[in-house]
Design a protein around this nucleic acid. Sequence first.
DNA 1: GACTTTTCTTGATACAGGTCAATGAAAACC
DNA 2: GGTTTTCATTGACCTGTATCAAGAAAAGTC
Lengths: 253, 253
Amino acid sequence: MMKNDTDKIVTLSKIKVACQSCNLYELCLPLGLHGEDLDQLEKIIKRAHPLKKNESPFQQGDKFQSIYAIRSGSVKTYTIADDGSEQITGFYLPGELVGLDAISDDCHPCTAKALETTSYCEIPYTALEQLSGELPSLRHQLLKIMSKEITHDANLLMLLGKKAADERLASLLLSLSSRLKNRGFSATEFHLSMSRNDIANYLGLAVETVSRLFTRFQDQGLIQVEGKFVQIIKLEELKAMTKECTCENPKMA
Amino acid sequence: MMKNDTDKIVTLSKIKVACQSCNLYELCLPLGLHGEDLDQLEKIIKRAHPLKKNESPFQQGDKFQSIYAIRSGSVKTYTIADDGSEQITGFYLPGELVGLDAISDDCHPCTAKALETTSYCEIPYTALEQLSGELPSLRHQLLKIMSKEITHDANLLMLLGKKAADERLASLLLSLSSRLKNRGFSATEFHLSMSRNDIANYLGLAVETVSRLFTRFQDQGLIQVEGKFVQIIKLEELKAMTKECTCENPKMA
DNA sequence: GACTTTTCTTGATACAGGTCAATGAAAACC
DNA sequence: GGTTTTCATTGACCTGTATCAAGAAAAGTC
């Protein structure tokens, strides 16, 4: 039963999709582009074969060539430290761009790996940077997306720096919920394409803690879990949870 | 004695400095620009009066107008959550750009505050975005700086997600050390312009923990501390500290 | 210079969440 | 279909760091 649901979500895509007809148009790079301009962008975009689960479009240390727009499926990015420990830096959903962190050093600081069957568009960066010189809308949108990535990371910092374990998990669930909603999926029922281990790693927790939290949330009637299938029952309470932090010092200026 | 040292570092700047003669040229936005192009960039840059300690160039929620390049001094950025708790998202040194996270929503998601007397250049964003269309080098450098910000945040995530308290403090000290070095200051002796409280907040720790760590590091002979003045004695050992993480699972693929 | 306020340090105690260990449940593989 | 391997859950225990409390040192203020 879960398998079927996953497939339903995953296999929306056909291999050959133009930006014009892509339902992610509003979320992705081409937002604001039309006619001739959009054609130009499409000309530089390569559409590759979908990735199978666990395949990587690029590895940490690879020379930076392209950024990648997820079309369907999902991807995680992670860095491996010198000591071999892995830190997941993000989960990416359809319409999101992966690889923007490679621009500064011309080399990918993290590895991307498909969490499930995932199709994507490859956008050669040199061409993109050049084209963004000619198309103000594209330039605008690119900078905007990069800025959003910075904001997102800053939020995550807040999360890892200050929040308790339950608030962290709640935040992740809410983030996925709202992003999925924006993409036309249900905000209240969805599949987690990542493992408990991935979630724990991302949130800076132990797997056991994450597992316990899922059952606790369920006991509290906040969510309904069955393996990777999650149903959010009390969205508002989850939201409240991420807000009412333990620390109560409103005097700080 | 500490006051004097601080002043020495802070008051390098004169109010009117053109990018051409600014010693931060290599680190800042104009990198790669010359002659005519550099003139164009300079034309849009405003140079404002220095900020006194605790003054803010912008506040959380302000409409986004400009990004800010620090010329001398230093700045912290922080967000205030709904519950009033504050999370510091970054410390910025000369040559670094503050406010890039505001591009995506056209509104500053954080407040910036001077940690000491700080001079800066204000760069109106609309003009910058437009100009970056005409000047490939500028466009390149802007994207690069934004990408670096993303990478930096990702590192910090790693820090807060996985590392123990002592590794976090070591990382911060090393980050400051190397950034100061790049800016022509000493890598081994410097002032912390931020309070212990700020450090603790940034690293997701309690002030008491930070304080204890400073004394412990000193007892271990790693550093020498006197208030805000820090001298790094064993740079290599500090570096080793940030690498040898507790978790030893090199089997993870 | 005395007074107030803030910042920093140090000690004692408590608890959230990590670690270890064991079992159950899915996937993956042959 | 059974076996192996990976993943998830649950319990018992322990440790690092937060919290509470109190004093010392700086930094502002008059």
